[in-house]
Amino acid sequence: MKQEYTEIESPALLDNVKEMKEDGYRLVQICCTRVPDGYELTYSFDKEYNFCHLRLTVPESGWVMSITSLYWSAFIYENEMHDLFGLDVRHIANDVDYKGTFYRLSEKAPWHTPPKKPAPPVRPQAKQPPVSKAAPAGEAVKTTAKAEEGAKEHG
């Protein structure tokens, strides 16, 4: 099944979403992915089982316009993006702008930092690690990180 993502620019977001609304599309979800230089937002819409996506890349220090003026139910996703990723979403409708209190978290924007280069899962330290396992680069660094993470995990 081929899936298409239409790339759009940040200033054109509201126009594109307005077109979707006028065509009768339902907002399905808004997904935020942290990429190394910013955020990649995917807006998904559906009409009569026809699924399509708009893709938007926002730089780290950038901001994105809220679409609650067109789709009121987008506040759920926008508040979540703001609380978890620290993404600056502006002009959310007044009655549903929870200003960071939607998600009760102990630290602000816990998913703000981009994912590190993939590290293997924490393997409990066996005395003789199996030699035949094909390990990614940087094995020496991993051993110390493993001990730390292992202590944290069992703590």
Binding site: Y103, R104, L105, P110, W111
Partner: peptide
Amino acid sequence: SIGYVHRGLEK
């Protein structure tokens, strides 16, 4: 307001 069973599974 949610977050009581947030386990960060997506991360």
